[in-house]
Design a protein around this nucleic acid. Structure first.
Lengths: 207, 207
DNA sequence: TATCCTATATATAAGGT
DNA sequence: TACCTTATATATAGGAT
């Protein structure tokens, strides 16, 4: 409480060499901070300029963090298909990516459900993030979701699921590694349960 | 040299609303600046923490800008294959992405060769970027490449080409949209010619 | 591992060239 | 469209909790 005289509390930010940070601890901290900063910058760019952006980061621990506007899948599809003008090409390729993305999200949700109970929630800017059509899948952001937001996210997933089914029926291609059917079920029930949820309408837990 | 009295030359950076920039001109400028900043941040993160990162941005004009460490293809492959530990999974899927990436690079090079002669070069931090195994494919950075750097890049491409051939022969899968053979030829000769090159050993222009 | 705080290092919005 | 300058908004390194 007492003012520590002229004693500076910190030397403030210092310049660092642009090379691998040796100290494993410092490296982890820097990774977390800069990863957050990078996602923020990417989000801002997509908002300010309305451009399509995809960002994927793998942590040292092997965890994947991603951001996509409007979503990672369509950006990647566009990148490899070299289709500069199409929003989302309704091709077999598109449906393949769509399927892969849905599976991705399912697994992320399943994985999250096991970790959620040991983390506190923070969600502040999540609302805005959800309002745009972007998808954030970082730990922090999923942690910040409250039930209302979770409900909104569920709505989006349902739409995607339906859209995917429509595509799968329209053109049933046999794609390597990704069987066209059945449609993966999102385990929102588990997620909700891990939060100690009890006021969730039981019917909308089933997609 | 003389202090311009108390007349401020600029009001300096001002805060802006986080929403789509209406003025098309200002939006373009902001896009360029922030895109550059985002790529720099991504590069720094990959260097400081040695993590795998992929970043893809589409400009309003439809041009694709990408960054990947070690390369976009492997990050995306890992992302969709959900293979957290493997460096580069030697699967059919991997070879598909590999092929797609090589084609991508070929097209980028071909496209660049037509623009290069009307641009000046700047390359300063390119050297460092090339030393790492990262690939930058933004306009500015390709412009900055000098012959030595181009030669180094060629070396990498040759390695990739060979690796791709090895994979293609080891497991010849029929992949949708991307015929496994023949291997696309990179048109380095065109690139060199557009720069007014004449001292390039004719033999290494052929991959 | 996340968060807070301080003091700096950087990124950039505007306005010119 | 790119680059330079100025003044300010942000991002963060280091340290502590």
């Amino acid at each position: 409480m007492a003012p520590p005289q002229g004693k500076k509390k910190s030397q403030g930010r210092r310049k660092i060499e642009m090379k691998l940070i040796e100290d494993e601890n410092a490296r982890t901290v820097t990774f977390s901070k800069r990863r957050a900063g990078l996602f923020k910058k990417a989000t801002e760019l997509s908002v300010l300029c309305g451009t399509q952006i995809a960002l994927i980061i793998f942590s040292l621990g092997g965890r994947a963090y991603s951001f996509g506007h409007p979503d990672v899948e369509s950006i990647i599809g566009r990148f490899f298909n070299k289709n500069p003008t199409a929003t989302v090409p309704e091709s077999s390729s598109s449906s393949r990516y769509r399927t892969a993305m849905l599976q991705e999200m399912k697994e992320q949700f399943d994985g999250k459900s096991q970790e959620l109970e040991t983390k506190k929630k923070r969600g502040k800017e999540i609302e805005a993030a959800l309002e745009s059509s972007s998808f954030h899948t970082t730990d922090e952001e999923l942690d910040g979701l409250d039930f209302e937001q979770l409900r909104q996210l569920r709505g989006k997933l349902v739409k995607m699921r339906d859209e995917m089914r429509r595509l799968a029926n329209a053109n049933a291609y046999a794609v390597a590694n990704v069987p066209p059917m059945p449609v993966p079920m999102l385990n929102l029930a588990q997620v909700a349960k891990s939060r100690g949820a009890s006021m969730i309408p039981s019917d909308w837990l089933k997609l």
